Simulated scan of single mutants.
Amino acid sequence: MNDSTEQPLHETLLHDALHTHVQESGDSTAGPYLAGLADGALRVARRRQRLARAGACVAAAAVVAVGAVAVADGTTTQHAHVVQPAAGDTGNTAKAALLSILPVTSSTETACTHGSGGYTVDASATHPAFCVKADRTKGMTGVRVASAKAGRSTLDGTWQVEVTLTPADRTRFAALTGSIASAPPPRNGFAIVIDGKLWGNPSVTASITGGRLEIVGAYVGDLTSTTAHDLALRLNADG
């Protein structure tokens, strides 16, 4: 019996359903991701069957994720988004990137001086360089997210990564945002730091209780499809 007849039923159904959706919808944006996901799922299923017969054991999955746009009161707007596995990939086994959420202490339109402990955002054609300093002692460090999903903003279509925190970190995040909400700018903002780099600097006016936040880059519109998907994969890594 060949691999195509031995593959699990759910991979077959996923493949057929996604290809049917692509053909019927004609969506040029999501279509390639959906088709790639379907084909990737079949490749994973066949590889798993061959390795199982050889006595090996692997775990791999292709995921159709549902994004959630964060608002202060914790309500969400849902939209579908597909995370496509790389060609030939058997699963993300890298160590997950950890997130830090730090209350901002200052923000100035100049690059940080060496050794100041701030986070420099380089100048662009439309924005000046600036330096954000934050308080690590009062922030959340070493945060492993529950999930991260790349997608387009429902407001302006720019790319972003929508992060969902674990229940324990959701409580900490609500307390942190509540404690800075009434402070004057820029101290009502928090720095989103990953691997020593500033990925966002949003401000808040109320406690965020839903446990979700959006990473949009130092400036809105900084992220591309590639950088958003790469960041989501790094945050979701299994290792």
Rank of each mutant, 00 (worst) to 15 (best):
S182T: 12
A86I: 11
R234G: 01
G115H: 09
P184A: 13
S203Q: 15
G74Y: 02
H19C: 10
P184K: 15
H21D: 13
A111I: 07
T77S: 07
L18R: 07
D89T: 07
L233Q: 11
D16R: 15
G118E: 12
G189T: 09
Y219I: 04
N92P: 00
V64H: 11
E214Q: 07
D16C: 10
A97P: 00
K197T: 13
G118D: 12
V82Q: 09
E11A: 11
A181S: 06
D195I: 05
T108F: 08
P128I: 15
A80N: 05
P8V: 07
A183H: 13
I215N: 02
Q49Y: 10
G36D: 13
G217C: 08
V132G: 01
R234K: 14
T76D: 05
E11P: 03
P185I: 15
F190E: 13
A97W: 01
A183P: 01
A191N: 09
V204N: 02
S147G: 03
S25Q: 09
S207F: 01
Q49V: 11
A17K: 12
G142D: 12
D3R: 14
T5F: 05
P32R: 11
G196N: 09
G36K: 05
T93H: 04
H81V: 14
A52T: 14
G210C: 05
I101N: 00
R152Y: 01
A86N: 09
G115S: 10
V104S: 00
H21S: 09
C131S: 06
T75N: 06
K138I: 06
A70T: 04
T77I: 08
T29P: 00
V83R: 08
V132D: 04
A38V: 10
G74V: 01
T141H: 05
L13T: 12
L34M: 15
Q49T: 10
T226E: 15
F173A: 01
N188F: 06
K149D: 08
D27L: 08
P8L: 02
R47K: 15
H79D: 00
A52W: 13
G196E: 12
R53I: 04
V216G: 02
R50Q: 12
I180Y: 02
T205E: 13
D27Y: 10
A218E: 06
T141R: 04
T137K: 13
R144M: 06
C131N: 08
V204H: 02
L34K: 15
I101H: 00
V132N: 03
D195A: 13
D89K: 04
A232C: 03
A35K: 06
D89G: 03
L13C: 07
S203G: 13
C57G: 10
R170M: 07
